[in-house]
């Protein structure tokens, strides 16, 4: 496989457009979903049904002054949002949108996405530490505390799928589900996966590291303007990647009748994102220690047992 300079530039432009557009749509969608769940309309003023509201907010955020607290660790403070955002550009590489639309077919694509997902936590930790703010530090510490509790069940989930398919390549996994989606074989695993990615993306009911009623705004308490919006961009992009991974691992990737593959992939991705938004606007927040024991005592054994059973069934 040869990589041309043009290809890289093309990919970067495409991915930047996707990340930006995705964030614009998701922020708008989130506000609309929240609005309708709360008997109100959400943004309505800018553009038809407020579709341009996020753009207006984005312009406002970009034009804002970047305030750095006096006592903050300046390099870390500035680095944190970048550390949070940049891995996304790499993580989107192996994500297949259809049989032909894929940036680069990697034989370890799945591993790459999982590994890069960890960097988000590093960004949160850096932000928490660099802000020199106790609330931010608590938020950063929480993000690190929860990482093992969800990453291990998540990895076991992924391992089970890899075992079923025999490949780390996302494309192969999607092709293997041509006839039957994995979610039909592994419904429990799908639930475990959705819970763990909700944790990974710091979404309510597991938004411990920003927990606004406890930690003011958690790790991004001190961030304003562009720093804040980069975290925002990162959160929504991770949601997109997590949902994209769910689509490929469990919902058969681009397979579906009538519509072209890309359309099916996007429909599935945004359905899962809608599900995650639905969680956020209905549930109260879980307490951090309850989540940790839930992760270790329920999610981990559940996914392990599932793994062993699957292995047994496959061996037969």
């Amino acid at each position: 496989m040869n990589i041309s300079l043009l290809g890289i530039v093309g990919y970067l432009v495409g991915i930047a457009a996707l990340v930006g557009l995705n964030a614009v749509i998701l922020v708008w969608l989130e506000r609309k979903v929240a609005g309708h769940m709360q008997f109100r309309l959400g943004p309505m003023e800018v553009g038809p049904h407020g579709i341009l509201q996020t753009l207006a907010d984005g312009i406002k955020l970009v034009s804002k002054q970047l305030v750095i607290p006096d006592e903050a660790d300046k390099p870390l403070f500035l680095l944190a949002p970048i550390v949070s955002l940049v891995p996304i550009f790499a993580a989107m590489v192996p994500l297949p949108f259809s049989e032909t639309v894929q940036a680069w077919e990697l034989n370890i694509g799945l591993l790459l996405i999982i590994a890069l997902g960890l960097l988000n936590t590093l960004g949160i930790l850096l932000a928490g530490w660099g802000s020199n703010n106790k609330y931010a530090l608590l938020g950063g510490a929480r993000a690190v505390a929860q990482i093992l509790a969800y990453k291990i069940p998540l990895l076991i989930c992924v391992m089970t799928i890899i075992m079923m398919t025999g490949s780390f390549s996302l494309r192969d996994i999607a092709i293997a589900q041509k006839d039957t989606w994995n979610v039909l074989y592994q419904p429990i695993l799908f639930i475990v996966y959705i819970i763990t990615v909700t944790l990974e993306t710091n979404r309510s009911p597991f938004d411990f590291s920003e927990a606004e009623s406890e930690l003011v705004a958690g790790f991004h308490t001190e961030y304003s303007g562009m720093g804040f919006s980069l975290f925002f961009l990162a959160e929504y992009s991770y949601m997109f990647i997590a949902a994209g991974l769910a689509t490929v691992l469990f919902l058969g990737g681009w397979h579906g009748p009538w519509l072209p593959g890309v359309a099916w992939t996007l429909i599935k991705i945004y359905s899962i994102i809608f599900l995650m938004m639905w969680f956020r606007w209905t549930f109260p927040r879980v307490r951090i220690d309850q989540m940790l024991s839930f992760g270790w005592k329920i999610l981990l054994p559940l996914s392990l047992i599932n793994f062993i059973i699957t292995a047994g069934v496959l061996a037969l």
Binding site: A34, M37, R40, D207, E212, T282, F283, P284, R285
Partner: peptide
């Protein structure tokens, strides 16, 4: 407790 929707309802 972290639930936003009840407040507006």
């Amino acid at each position: 407790l972290g639930g936003f929707t009840p407040f507006l309802q």
